[in-house]
Design a protein around this nucleic acid. Structure first.
Length: 497
RNA sequence: GGCGCAUUCGUCUAGUGGUUAGGACGUAAGAUUCUCAAUCUUGAAACACGGGUUCAAUUCCCGUAUGCGCUACCA
């Protein structure tokens, strides 16, 4: 049988990194097994679902290269089928109408309310004590006919247990007496989550359900629905959650943009790097290795390699250098400096374009210069943004000077204010402005001034690139060329800041 | 409260009934006589706790603690 899996996010807000990782694992598993990766948008919570969120989910998947097979399924389109399934269960006495008036609950403190109610029950509650559970069919029909509102609940059997073998967590069992007669259809006819999920998974012929661990206990209820419906139960695999530092839940309200996929795309992450990082957060191939291409991930992936303990997404608030997980940052830098050049170029081009630094000559007359320069500066960049920020001086005359760099490398040596323009004059007559020739000139100049090479080089770096770190200055002079080098060495702009 | 799941360096993780408990990120120190967040070298850093079982437990069992999840006419 062909493996069919699905990624089923709710479009309530942006695409969360935890959800994204579930999507990734579903994708890897599908490809590994030669199966299909389907997408279902669970938009049954009309109040919270937005089209914008659906778009961000699609964009996120596209960015990561997780292409889905077949048409997207929108769960809200299937409500009629969910209702039909419920009424079938009602006919077969697998469900019953509950005429208990609906309780008004505010979303606000719902968790506490539930916990409080449970505490009062002391866990002794009989889950089968609903007075309408054994109402005669005649009376139930009559009351419904009379227009009395009702919810429809699953009639969980009195004795027995559900049991399934989770591909990650192993054997799971639960006694029926611990499972309430869950509501399938609200009194307003709205199908509820557990019902909708099961119906859709049956209809989509899902063979493996791979999702977050927060659904591990829901699975028992869903199995009951599968059985009541007489459908085959798929194989389940639950994934450990991704938590915030301190082991708390990673949520938008508390942790903000850090949990959103768009943050990483917009911050200049290379999709392949982030995908690689995400794959390793909760799974390992059991080898001492960090970098995997998408094909390699597919080849190595297995549900057995998924961990059971939650992973912490480690970052430091208010620390720009560690604004997100260090390993993600490192991996991005690693990709930028080692990925195939022809794969990097389009990404750099897009970044320069959005920063209005792109010129078409970079693909034409200045192609060689452009590629040499990118290769030179990518060695110490962390994100694609660095090409337009730290690297701005390579593409524009309009760049800023870093204050610390100016203080430390320029103003600390006042002589440089006359020396550097003087050095520019030494460049003037040079016919061959290449690495070795420049070195000769600069070295001789340094000796004449009886100073250290570092003073000249660091000062020149601050003036030519605006920052204190970067490639070897000889390479910078060469790549910027004689004219620009001279111009910037003579410029007094930085001195006047 | 009940039920469930988990627990190896700060973080991601490898691993085993007898190991100097391995790697990566981060971090510290040194090198690179032009910088550095690059590169190279070196270092510090972990089996949650308490009982068992065993010649031997980080590894198996039980308990405790801690964290997380579920316990909705939310998803």
């Amino acid at each position: 049988m062909t493996v069919r899996v699905r990624f089923a996010p709710s479009p309530t807000g942006y695409l969360h990194i935890g959800a994204t990782r579930s999507g990734l694992y579903n994708y890897l598993f599908a490809k590994k097994m030669g199966g299909k990766f389907l997408l279902r948008i669970e938009d049954t919570d009309l109040a919270r679902s937005t089209d914008e969120s659906t778009r961000s989910i699609l964009e996120g998947l596209e960015w990561l290269g997780l292409e889905y097979d077949e048409e997207i399924v929108f769960q809200s389109n299937n409500a009629e089928k969910h209702r039909a399934a419920t009424h079938r269960l009602l006919e077969n006495d697998k469900a019953y109408r509950d005429f208990t008036p609906k309780e008004q609950t505010s979303d606000k403190n719902i968790k506490q309310t539930i916990a409080e109610r449970a505490r009062q029950n002391q866990g002794e509650k009989n889950m089968r004590d609903n007075p309408y559970r054994d109402l005669s069919k005649a009376e139930s029909d009559a009351r419904a006919e009379a227009g009395e509102p009702f919810a429809i609940r699953l009639k969980v059997p009195e004795i027995g247990r559900t049991s399934f073998e989770d591909s990650v967590y192993g054997l799971q069992e639960r006694d029926y007496k611990e499972i309430e007669d869950l509501v399938l259809l609200r009194s307003d006819g709205h199908p509820l989550y557990n019902l909708a999920v099961v119906c859709d998974d049956i209809e989509m012929r899902i063979t493996n359900v791979i999702r977050g661990q927060d659904h591990l206990t829901n699975t028992h209820k869903q199995i009951l629905i599968y059985e009541a419906l007489g459908a085959e139960v798929p194989k389940f695999a639950h994934l450990p959650l991704i938590l915030a530092p301190g082991g708390k839940k990673l949520s938008k309200r508390i942790h903000g943009e850090i949990v959103s996929m768009t943050t990483y795309r917009d911050a200049g992450f290379v999709a392949a790097a982030f995908r690689n990082f995400l794959a390793l957060l909760g799974w390992s191939a059991g080898e001492e290795r960090e970098i995997y291409s998408l094909d390699e991930l597919i080849e190595k992936f297995s549900l057995e390699g998924v961990h059971r303990n939650p992973a912490i997404f480690n970052y430091q608030e208010n620390n720009p250098r560690h604004w997100t997980d260090d390993k993600a940052l490192w991996m991005n830098a690693e990709y930028i400096r080692t990925m195939p050049f022809e794969e990097l170029l389009p990404l750099v081009k897009a970044e320069l374009k959005s920063a209005k630094l792109w010129r078409d000559e970079y693909e034409d007359d200045d192609k060689t210069w452009f590629e040499t320069t990118i290769d030179l500066i990518r060695q110490r960049f962390f994100t694609l943004k660095d090409f337009s920020r730290q690297g701005r001086a390579y593409f524009s005359e309009d760049f800023d000077f870093d204050t610390a760099a100016i203080e430390k490398n320029l103003k600390k040596f006042p002589d440089l204010q006359t020396w550097l323009p003087e050095l520019a004059e030494r460049f003037e007559p040079m016919e061959d402005f290449s690495h070795d020739r420049i070195e000769e000139v600069v070295k001789q100049f340094t000796e004449e001034k009886n100073t250290k090479l570092g003073v000249i080089m660091n000062g020149a770096r601050a003036l030519l690139t605006g920052v204190a770190v970067g490639p070897s200055m000889l390479a910078v002079f060469e790549t910027l060329g004689k004219e620009k080098s001279m111009l910037r060495l003579k410029s007094q702009i930085a001195w006047n800041q």
